[in-house]
Amino acid sequence: MTIMRRPFFWIIAAVVALFAVLPAAGNNVELRENLLLAAVYITLASNINMILGYAGYVNFGSIVFFGLGGYFCVWLMSAHGWPLAAALLAGGVAVSTLALLFGLGILRLRGVYFALATIGVNEGVMAFVTNFGPWGGSSGIYLSPALFQPLGGPAKALWVVYYLLVGVMAASLYLSYAVKRSKFGLGLLAIGQNEDAAAVLGVPTPRYKAAVYSLSALLPAIAGGLYFFKSAFIQPPDAFDLQLSTEAIVIAMLGGQGTVLGPAIGAFLYVQLRGWLLVSPTFSNFQLVIAGVLLLAIVLFAPGGLMGWIYRRWPRLRGFLE
């Protein structure tokens, strides 16, 4: 595999190893929970980066993938008795397919129109699920604790879910990297720079945009399935928490939109920063404010984010890392 000769491969491998080993040593459950959240952030941010950073399209509603993935998984397990793995995969495929259908519709919209439509997709899906009987409407779905038995009981199941999520995170980073270095990725980057010029040069813009929209739905949907399996409960406000997709955008921008490592570094920085700023629980309402101020500062003063800044200072690094 030529990919194993790239430094990038080993950087990701090291990050994943840290995620795997740190909480396991000493059975540190609190650290595990924090890292689990970080893995979710990185998964969301890395996938949104393929649309935002590569193709230059804003998706304000990426959380829809996460939430719908959760719903499919939880519903298949509780109502149809599917095992976790099958439910996760089916959820991922179903959400990707749905995204492809949405994508073929709304990706005929250009630029800002598309961004507005993604807000609409979010509202629309949320309203639909809230009214959808088989998924419990506004009261949601509960999972019976018995469903944790096949994984060796609740305590062990939490570890399994954690490792699976770390796997999904790693897959997201590799996917992002593979896309960037492919012909598909080159086409997306061209679209992000100048969509008209890209089309004139032969980039099949509608197909590529729909494909990346759909592709960026797959892993978040699986992550959503894992996340809500772990909670054993899902209802619309949690599944479609706009704050999470907002934070994913902030993280991708902070780390450096369009770079492969940016989302991972951005997630780390963001969680650290929030940790420092939110020491007191009375300030927890200010999470959005911090995200907003941070985003504004990046957009106005450092649109390339941290990695963008680094690559501008040391252009050689870009060739080395990406």
Binding site: V58, F60, V112, I249, L288, V289, A291, G292, P303
Partner: peptide, 22 residues
């Protein structure tokens, strides 16, 4: 690029709504 003003006004919106909620 339009992406930028979209994100900057979105960010301000976050701040305003965040303060309002608090």
């Amino acid at each position: 690029p339009p992406l930028m003003s979209l994100l900057s006004t979105f960010a301000v919106n976050l701040v305003l709504v965040g303060v309002g909620t608090a």
